[in-house]
Simulated scan of single mutants.
Amino acid sequence: MSEARWLLIGSDLRIEECARMFKEKGLDVTVHLKDEVTDELTNKIATIHPTHIVLPIQGVKGMLDSKLFSKGTVFFTGIIPGIQKMALKSEGHFVSSYLSDERFVWNNALLTAEGFVKEFYLETNTPIASTHFQIAGFGRVGRMLAHVLSASGAKLTVFARSEAQLGEAEALGFEVKNLSPDVEFKPGFLINTIPSQWLAIQPEDTLRVFDLASKPGCLKPGMSSAYYTLHLGLPGKHFPQRAASYLADTILRMCRGKE
C-alpha cells in the first residue's frame, strides 16, 4: 500500500477529515469535495491515476467511466448503483463496500442517533425527556435511536414488520406495534429508519416525520408534507472528526485484509 495513490470523493465533511488523517499516515492523497462526476473529477483521475478510490456513503451523481482507471483499481463504496458496480468490475477493478463492515455500520448508526438529537433540538426546541417518539424500523439505526432517546427519558413506540425486531424491542422494554399497511400513527413525532418508500401521508397531516433513511426517503411517490424532512449524512454533518476516524480505520482495515 506504500505506492498507493488515493482519491477521496464527496462533499461530506468526513471525506475531507479522512483525507487529512490519511495524509498524516504518510499516504499520497488527493481529495475531490463534490458529490458528482464532473470534468474536474475526470481530469484529476487522468492526472493522478489513482489506485485506491473512496466514494461517499450516498454515492455520486453520474457514472464514473470505468475505462479511465488502471486495471485493478480498488474502490471503497457506500451506496452504489448496481450498473456502476458491474461496469467497474467488468473492467477488472475491485469494489468493496465499507457499509458491509459491521463495526463501521454500528458506529455510524450511533453517530446518526446522536446527530438526530441535535437536529431535533434545533428544529423543535422540545426536550426529549417525557416526549413520545414513534420509531419505524428496528435495525441498527433504530436500535441506536431507541438506546439514545430512552437514556434521555423519552417514551418510545417501535413499529416494525419483522417479528424478530418486534420481539427484540419488546424484550428491551419498548412498546411495539406491527407496521402494517393500514397502520395509524399518533400525533407527534415519527422517526423513519426504513430505506424504502412506504409511508402514505396526506397534505393535512401534522405528524412530524424525521426521515433518517437514504434517498429518496420513506414517502410514497407523489406524497409530500410540510412536516416531513429528510436528514442525510448526520455523522459527517455534526461529528466529522469522529465519523472520519471510523471511516479511515475501516478502509485501512479492509486494505490490510486484501494484502
Rank of each mutant, 00 (worst) to 15 (best):
residue 159 F to H: 04
residue 50 P to Q: 05
residue 189 F to C: 00
residue 65 D to F: 08
residue 136 A to M: 11
residue 57 I to C: 15
residue 240 P to M: 01
residue 40 E to R: 09
residue 115 G to C: 13
residue 129 A to F: 15
residue 203 P to H: 02
residue 232 L to T: 11
residue 200 A to Q: 08
residue 153 G to I: 08
residue 22 F to P: 14
residue 252 L to I: 14
residue 149 L to H: 04
residue 60 V to S: 08
residue 140 R to L: 15
residue 85 K to G: 06
residue 177 K to C: 00
residue 212 L to M: 11
residue 148 V to W: 15
residue 109 A to I: 15
residue 244 A to Q: 07
residue 16 E to H: 04
residue 140 R to M: 12
residue 143 R to F: 14
residue 168 E to M: 05
residue 185 F to K: 00
residue 151 A to N: 11
residue 162 S to R: 00
residue 49 H to K: 15
residue 124 T to F: 15
residue 74 V to Q: 06
residue 44 K to Y: 11
residue 258 K to R: 12
residue 194 I to A: 01
residue 234 L to W: 13
residue 233 G to M: 03
residue 110 L to N: 12
residue 166 L to Y: 07
residue 195 P to S: 00
residue 198 W to R: 00
residue 140 R to T: 08
residue 133 F to H: 07
residue 20 R to G: 14
residue 197 Q to R: 10
residue 242 R to I: 13
residue 217 G to Q: 01
residue 238 H to L: 15
residue 40 E to F: 10
residue 191 I to T: 01
residue 39 D to V: 11
residue 8 L to I: 06
residue 72 G to N: 05
residue 183 V to P: 02
residue 245 S to W: 07
residue 101 D to G: 06
residue 101 D to Q: 05
residue 197 Q to D: 03
residue 203 P to E: 03
residue 151 A to P: 06
residue 223 M to F: 05
residue 172 L to K: 12
residue 213 A to G: 03
residue 84 Q to P: 11
residue 163 E to R: 09
residue 217 G to C: 01
residue 234 L to Y: 10
residue 258 K to M: 14
residue 229 T to D: 12
residue 257 G to P: 04
residue 202 Q to S: 12
residue 62 G to D: 11
residue 96 S to M: 07
residue 35 D to I: 05
residue 99 L to S: 01
residue 177 K to E: 05
residue 32 H to N: 14
residue 50 P to C: 05
residue 130 S to G: 11
residue 78 G to K: 01
residue 44 K to A: 08
residue 75 F to R: 04
residue 225 S to L: 04
residue 27 L to M: 10
residue 177 K to V: 03
residue 153 G to D: 06
residue 233 G to Q: 01
residue 14 R to N: 09
residue 75 F to I: 03
residue 257 G to L: 03
residue 167 G to N: 13
residue 134 Q to M: 13
residue 199 L to R: 00
residue 135 I to S: 04
residue 9 I to C: 10
residue 176 V to L: 06
residue 63 M to G: 05
residue 178 N to M: 09
residue 81 P to T: 03
residue 245 S to C: 12
residue 172 L to P: 02
residue 124 T to S: 11
residue 149 L to T: 00
residue 68 L to Q: 12
residue 164 A to K: 03
residue 173 G to L: 08
residue 63 M to W: 10
residue 8 L to E: 07
residue 105 V to D: 07
residue 204 E to D: 14
residue 183 V to Q: 05
residue 100 S to E: 08
residue 251 I to G: 15
residue 149 L to W: 15
residue 218 C to N: 09
residue 183 V to G: 04
residue 131 T to Y: 13
residue 217 G to D: 03
residue 59 G to A: 04
residue 205 D to Y: 09
residue 222 G to E: 02
residue 92 G to H: 11
residue 224 S to V: 01
residue 223 M to E: 10
residue 82 G to M: 12
residue 256 R to K: 13
residue 255 C to Q: 15
residue 167 G to W: 08
residue 240 P to S: 01
residue 173 G to P: 02
residue 225 S to M: 03
residue 54 V to M: 05
residue 132 H to V: 06
residue 242 R to C: 09
residue 180 S to F: 04
residue 33 L to K: 09
residue 202 Q to F: 07
residue 58 Q to W: 00
